[in-house]
Design a protein around this nucleic acid. Structure first.
Lengths: 216, 216, 216, 216
DNA sequence: GATGAATGAGATTTCATTCAT
DNA sequence: TATGAATGAAATCTCATTCAT
């Protein structure tokens, strides 16, 4: 991809930031023109940068994934153990909430993410880092052994994603309570006997896109 | 009057059943015409019965709530204790999955449910029954004491609702695993220290509609 | 036309009365179902009596024309001269206001009136009576000689028809003022020099339907 | 910005002119698509310019009012006295006929006119100019003293508006005759005793919209 | 005969996307 | 390259009219 002129670059970043904001507020189906307007550009400019909605979603996703990956690595470096790093990531990372929001409402988002090399790559990196984090936490004994990183991902993403739009403080508290309950479920020993086998991150991928999250 | 009703009644039921099906597959925003076509009626018929999408959603909700309430009472009667009844309901009731799906994507659904007396009433009954069930389970010691029925409702609904569309068997298993993990979180003793206070069902209601679940 | 059973007859009259009412309130384009509902019958019944909207309009018109003709004859019999009879008719006959209202908004109404023998006939009788009335008033010197019955009809109908919907008292007064001004114009001697020739009632008829009043 | 404006401006004007034409022919309720088609644009274009029918009506009205105001001022400047100016305006201004047509069928139009600042302002200016014109004519003795500008407006508008759609020459003559008769009524001295008080233009305004002309 | 359920064509309005300037 | 105007394909909803009961 060719280097963009400074002003074009600025525009691109502005659009991504604006889209992230609006996606969080109003979902992925918001009119393109609204995004353009809030970003202060014409629709034409938006479409020049992102030929269709899918590419815009993928670009937002790539940016957000990158940022989450950074957060995850920082947490891993700075926290004493994997569990602390995991909870810090999950409870503190704003972008993580966005990520799952993006991934949620229709699975459609995943199609787009996987179609764009840029976002697919950072997605893969993020998954790898998550694999390692979960494995470490299990080695520490702080995540139960009968779950896989895929299980962790699914449960956390569901909880984080669904609660995103809450704006009043009571809603924030309720979200946090749900999240902590879910985390307790991931630690529970002894816990229920789970059907099937631990879910790996590899198992997710496309299949995620095609069904599990389809509640558009 | 009662004579023609048979015809109309059949159609009405057919439309509700069809809408339930399609809502589950494709969300609440599916074109009205698709619903009509699959039900084998004209759009006009659909609109005669349900003047707008909201009324259709409310009607589907009323039907589903009623069925869940029946399931809940059956489980309570037939199972040895509250926890068994609760897990049976949560893992076996097909309609429960629909319920939460309906409640989810935008909160919009709640507005409609509350606007229609029919669905509002059965919703209230369902909530009352849930209150009692959770209270009993806590008395048995099978649900942790620091959560309220609202917490239970939120967590379970998130997990059930989001997984609904999964059609391949692997997805079903993954859903079930998530659900069991969440249930383990509800039993965890000792669990994390939760912020705020237990959430009651009263606290939900409209506030649910207006924010927490708004990821449309 | 066959004699109707008593109850059918009652229904027919009821529908006509209701339609007259609603036409005055909301115009000729009101949904058929509204008329049926207010009349307390099913749409099917309405359509059985009046195969389409046009026939209903014609039936209302026939009823109203007949009533206006009766009013006119009564006025002629009871008032001392033609001018008094004319002003009494024009200022007092409720049905006259309806008549013009019917005739107005689209000209469409005339098509229907002329298509139905029943209303066409009474329309013709009314026209004949009007001819005579105007001629007599001119003989008395109370209507200027350079106008024809058609002129009178047009001017009065415009003023009466347009003011119909006024419900507040101020509007009623304004309507009456306009009407009196128009009547003064019909008496003015000497008045403006008018182009063309006096307009007869024959000259109206279909041409009225096809253009002059078409402001639908 | 100014560059593209040329294009858009041309289109906007074209749409307004087309709408004026069609409104006169077929009334205010003509399908938006017909207007778009005759103007040679897509519906989308029409809706981009005028978000709903009301805005289109208001825009047409503003254009027409402006043009009438210009006609009035020209007549006032060029004619020897107020009465001549008045009759010239009333008998010669094509746009005046459109104006009243717009104002008529439902009062709805007024709502829209008043909702849009642009048309509201020019409407007010027109009213002020009319006030002055009528006052001057009364000072000259050419309009009777017991009427107000509101009376004049109502009577003239009724006559002009209702006859608008006439296309055949005979209809034109008939319209002109009615108009002259009405004008004679405005001059008649001595005339009938009118109920109530002279109607001012202030008294019209919204009340016009809400009742008097409502024969939609 | 009466009823009101069903139909489907048509009107309004919105938006993703293309393209002229 | 940026802009925003234009397009037209949906989607929602309404109603005249037909027809089964």
């Amino acid at each position: 991809m060719a280097v963009l002129r400074a002003d074009a670059r600025r525009n691109r970043d502005l659009i991504i930031a604006t889209a992230k904001e609006i996606f969080v507020e109003s979902g992925l189906d918001v009119p393109m023109e609204n995004i353009a307007r809030r970003a202060g550009v014409g629709v034409g400019t938006l479409y020049r940068r992102f030929p269709d909605r899918g590419e815009l979603i993928a670009a937002v996703a790539a940016q957000v994934f990158g940022s989450v990956l950074t957060d995850l690595r920082a947490a891993r470096d700075e926290e004493p153990n994997a569990w602390e790093a995991f909870t810090r990531l999950v409870t503190r990372s704003e972008d993580l909430r966005v990520t799952w929001h993006l991934a949620f409402p229709s699975g459609r988002a995943w199609t787009m993410v996987h179609a764009a090399p840029e976002s697919r790559d950072v997605h893969r990196d993020m998954m790898a880092a998550l694999d390692e984090l979960v494995r470490d936490a299990q080695a520490e004994g702080s995540i139960r052994a009968d779950v896989g990183p895929g299980d962790v991902l699914i449960l956390v993403s569901i909880v984080l994603g669904t609660h995103l739009a809450s704006s009043d403080p009571a809603g924030q508290v309720r979200s946090e309570r749900s999240l902590l309950l879910a985390l307790d479920g991931l630690r529970a020993v002894p816990g229920s006997v789970l059907p099937g086998a631990p879910v790996s991150t590899e198992e997710l991928g496309w299949s995620v896109a095609e069904g599990d999250f389809d509640n558009a």
